[in-house]
Simulated assay, not measured.
Amino acid sequence: MKITEPPRSPAQRKRDVLARLERELDIWVATADGDGLPCLVALWFVWDGESVWMSTRVTNPTGRNLRDGGRTRLAFGDTQDVVLVDGDVECFDGQEGRDLPAAAAAAFVAKTGWDPIRISAAYAFFRVRPRAVQAWHGEHELRGRHVMRDGVWAV
């Protein structure tokens, strides 16, 4: 790839990240179990302006890892437009005594057309609150790629 564009400003990178969170349907979800065995899957998601909401079965490795580990790394698939989100996870599976916010479930169904809770009680929703976000287009944008640190937008 030949670099012909100047690096984006931090403010533009944040705008681009927020736009992707709004428009994309799938996001890569990286987790690990207690022994460190990694797992990587793509899941549908919705962004509510503060958190990413996803759903999967709590009986599969990703669901267990999200529930038990409490952390994840999320990524979009395009290597020429990298977005990495490190976040803290909360599980809403009916077992933890936390009620799934109706607005989050409705937004997920509206975006994806799929209601996992109607399919099976084995599905849970997971809220990922971003703690760190990085965004870059190639090597020339590695400097300044951190647009969020410690849960606070840098711009």
Rank of each mutant, 00 (worst) to 15 (best):
M1L: 14
K2L: 12
I3M: 06
T4Y: 03
R8I: 01
A11M: 13
Q12S: 14
K14F: 03
R15T: 09
L18R: 06
A19N: 08
R20G: 05
R20C: 07
E22F: 05
E24W: 06
L25K: 15
I27H: 04
V29R: 01
D33H: 04
D33G: 05
D35G: 13
L37G: 11
L37V: 14
C39G: 15
L43Q: 11
L43G: 10
W44S: 15
V46N: 02
S51P: 03
S51N: 14
M54C: 11
M54A: 12
T56P: 03
R57V: 13
V58N: 04
T59P: 01
N60W: 11
T62C: 10
G63N: 03
L66Q: 05
G70S: 00
R71N: 12
T72W: 01
G77R: 02
G77N: 07
G77M: 07
D81N: 05
V82K: 00
V82C: 02
L84K: 01
G87W: 01
C91E: 09
G94A: 07
G94I: 02
Q95S: 14
Q95C: 13
G97A: 04
L100H: 03
P101I: 09
A105I: 05
A105Y: 06
F108P: 06
V109L: 10
A110S: 13
G113I: 08
G113K: 10
D115C: 06
I117D: 11
I119F: 14
I119M: 13
S120G: 05
A121D: 12
A121N: 08
A122C: 11
R127A: 07
R129D: 10
P130Q: 03
H137K: 05
E141W: 01
L142P: 00
L142I: 06
L142K: 03
M148S: 03
R149I: 07
V152N: 11
